[in-house]
Design a protein around this nucleic acid. Structure first.
Lengths: 338, 338
DNA sequence: CTGAAAGCGCTAACAA
DNA sequence: TTGTTAGCGCTTTCAG
């Protein structure tokens, strides 16, 4: 059974001719050592490649420097834009402050909450990072009840810890609609998927607010399923209506793909006959023709803020007083016309 | 400092009126307990929600049930298809056998190898999962020298542990070329990026072998940078040459996007005037017009095989005698014509 | 400034 | 079948 035991604090102490304690101090309270001792010990630690055993340290300190991230299931038919860029940003941000990310997935037959409980009870991590957080997310309720530290990408309820970061989708879509209004569009459509995820709701709210503010005529459409075929069908209806909108706001870049496809089939040229804007700025948007106007999520800022809040909660034991709402970044490209 | 201590084995023992050992046995060697004791203790464990402290258990056993995955940096300009589906598959496979994935990223100024060493020395994980493995990957050499368990997505050298899984890209591209030959194409082009990643080399080798086998005329092109603009430029040259190929094999779906773009600009219709096939089957390929013929990686099988090898190495202490080469799956869609 | 002692929670080996 | 003893490697008192 391997028992891959490495160099222990004892080994270093013996080599240095001091007690174990001195080695520990060199690492955790260097100011307590006489400079010359410190230097000697430090060099020896370096030479031997000594690192405190994480488990022993954790057992003693109760702290693990690991953050659990329950990974959303990534459905190829409707890829989660988060899995790519968000995780990347989170790993980088956590790494900067000496934390690592442990991916969590409920075992078959296990609920999300049970999976959280298991990790909490086994004291495997210091905190949780939640994404795709619903307005009344059971995971948030559960962690709040357990008094366990977490931070959420997505707003939580007012009576819950305000350790959340979110994108101001409402405002971003209002700006998107404003852009269209400024180019003379009067009839605009909004294309969403069926789900009631809060971020989608926000985008819809933004659309409505934008339409109202600019005195436009807005229509709303929903794609029934996640498949491309269904999406294209709905979009074609949208384009064939008698009062065809001159502009479409899609709630996500994936939905916009359906508009590209349907427009081609209908002989409508995006950018010329129809303006199109969307949300997420997936990497592929720049490759589309014409390139897609969309809203970029400030993923690095989001990740950094989330990790910051997490660390604060874990290390200070305090919870942020208020959530953080970050602006989305408009990326204007030819799909809304010249 | 929080000291979020939970229920310990001691608490359960006291509640059950037995010794700690009995609780431990109930979990680790149930057959040693009298059935009725076992049942009583088990119920109590359930009720109290007791879970052995992971750190204490690890300290004692030397095993952590955690696999480290050094995450490739995900460049938005050239997204790594792995980050999406591969990670998803790995998390699922590892979860099935009770392991979790710890994401690793070297700290600023730290080399890949140093990051590995740190984790090894601190005994944070049981094994490493490596992806994007180069033919002579320093990480593989390092882990081999350290005698630390790992499994690699990508072939390793013959003198290294053969704990790898890979896709038979050569064969897959030969089949792709065969498909084109069968439809009467004689002049075919291969479009790659500049990097010398082994999987790209394999795809090129496959192209050459396919061309040879079918007596075709092959040309090869390289996109200099990762940006879409450069890619389109090269592709346009490809399409403007005097002996324009009638079919293009792109080494990856992202490269194929450049062909779509350039073809549109040149007034060439893919599927009719030009056949196009690629590799990876990214989610977006089904949305392209016409939909793209490509090669799908068997990500679940790859992940399962990798995790299996890892577990074998960790738990049995033996290394697989040979690597595992898995076939890619041809996904035929309209881009190669009717 | 350094050393000795105690114990974090668990399990393997042995004793009863 | 169950309980006792010891110790995994570390850090936190508390003495020296």
């Amino acid at each position: 059974m391997a028992a891959r035991r490495g160099i222990t604090i004892e080994d270093v102490a013996r080599a240095a001719g001091v007690s174990r304690q001195t080695i520990s101090n060199a690492l955790n309270a260097p100011q307590r050592l006489k400079p010359e001792t410190l230097e000697r010990v430090t060099r020896l630690i370096e030479e031997l490649g000594y690192r405190p055993d994480q488990s022993a340290r954790s057992l003693k300190s109760g702290t693990r420097r690991i953050i659990a991230y329950p990974t959303p299931v990534d459905d190829p038919a409707n890829p989660n834009p988060l899995m790519g860029g968000f995780l990347e940003a989170v790993v980088a941000s956590a790494g900067e402050v000496g934390y690592r990310i442990l991916l969590l997935r409920p075992r078959p037959g296990q609920s999300q909450e049970q999976a959280l409980d298991e990790v909490i009870a086994a004291r495997t991590v210091d905190a949780f990072l939640l994404s795709d957080v619903m307005r009344d997310d059971p995971r948030v309720a559960h962690l709040t009840a357990a008094g366990f530290p977490f931070a959420a990408f997505g707003r939580t309820m007012p009576d819950q810890p305000q350790s959340w970061v979110d994108v101001d989708s409402v405002q971003a879509v209002i700006e998107l609609v404003g852009l269209l209004a400024a180019r003379g569009h009067r009839r605009v459509a909004f294309l969403a998927s069926v789900g009631a995820q809060p971020w989608m709701e926000d985008r819809r709210d933004g659309f409505r607010a934008g339409v109202r503010r600019h005195g436009l005529v807005g229509q709303e459409f929903s794609a029934p399923g996640d498949g491309p075929a269904e999406l294209v069908t709905v979009t074609r209806e949208l384009l064939r209506g008698r009062n065809r909108p001159t502009a479409v706001v899609a709630a996500g870049d994936w939905l916009a793909l359906g508009v590209y496809a349907a427009a081609r089939e209908e002989g409508i040229e995006i950018g010329a006959d129809l303006a199109l804007a969307a949300f997420d700025d997936l990497p592929l948007t720049a490759f589309l023709h014409p390139a897609l106007t969309t809203v970029r999520l400030p993923l690095q800022r989001i990740a950094r803020a989330l990790i910051g809040r997490l660390i604060q909660t874990v290390e200070d034991g305090t919870t942020p007083q208020a959530g953080l709402l970050l602006p989305g970044e408009l990326v204007v490209r030819p799909s809304i016309g010249p």
